[in-house]
Design a protein around this nucleic acid. Structure first.
Lengths: 152, 152
DNA sequence: ATATTAGTTCGTTTGAAACCGAACTAAATA
DNA sequence: TATTTAGTTCGGTTTCAAACGAACTAATAT
């Protein structure tokens, strides 16, 4: 693989994940592992490539391992760990994200319950918005399940 | 409306929006407007209720107006503006959010293009993940359109 | 035993976002 | 004309997450 292309790509992934709420180092780390083989990368390789301190790498890496996005394999008689991305949880993570819709729906529901003017246009719009989010909270898992069935 | 209940509710909305990437003041502001009538609230009322400085309220309010989440009406011969929530853009905002899926899909696609080991399990998993996100990028707008048709 | 190496821990620094207060503008009122 | 009011602007402070460096642990290798 062209090294310049890899560096550029990793930076792009870094930005993408940063925009989606990840710390920059974590994003670059994911990018680096995306361009790596399944044998995994050592702590030192990651540390060198993402050009961050060992402590930053350690923290970011452990957080990603906790989240289940990164796994590692070990080789007996070899102290190093070989880190790699686990792509499987991404789908279930998306399903979890759909819970946003139901919690927003119930937040709106609470609001409607609180309001005196059930007949006002604004309250009606709130009710509609709640219905919309309830609908999405139901439909999202459905379409994900559908995909899972298609691809098992 | 019970004032204590309103205060509690506004705080809850504040936390929710804060968790979803909004500044705390903006979240509380949205909460306050959710519990308000469609006539709208004045700058001063908001300022008092959310208990933040005028400058913070001004900044947060203007950002929300820019985003189209808050609108205001004016009354001739009255200098005040009456701010209220516009609930209509929420649905299209959700549709926009679905663009996340297509941009992630193309990010993965770039990665696959970069990789030499097209046949490896990891690359295959990447391809699958890309397909999954493409699928969602198509299905999300569809189910939203479906809802819109049901409720026009 | 000594030296490397892999990774962790922890106290400090840095940088950006959020918030603030005070001074300001511009319209309305007296 | 002078004053009040609605909202803005801008420079400074606070706050908090992210990153860092240096010292540490524990396993391996010499």
């Amino acid at each position: 693989m062209n090294e310049k292309a890899r560096v550029d790509y990793v930076e792009k992934v870094g930005v993408f994940f940063e925009q989606n709420g990840y710390p920059p180092v974590a994003g670059r780390l994911i990018g680096y592992l995306m361009t790596s083989n399944e044998k995994g990368r050592t702590f030192y390789e990651i540390h060198q490539f993402v050009n961050a301190s060992k402590s930053s790498v350690s923290t970011a890496l452990n957080k990603l391992v906790e989240k289940g996005l990164v796994k590692y394999l070990t080789i007996s008689g070899d102290r190093k760990r070989y880190f790699f991305l686990d792509l499987k949880p991404w789908i279930s993570k998306t399903k979890e994200r759909a819970e946003f819709f139901s919690s927003f729906a119930s937040l709106i529901s609470d609001c409607v319950a609180l309001r005196g003017d059930k007949e006002s246009e604004f309250t009606q719009d709130l009710v509609k918005l709640e219905a919309f989010h309830k609908y999405l909270a139901e439909e999202m898992p459905k379409i994900i399940d559908k995909w899972e069935k298609m691809h098992l």
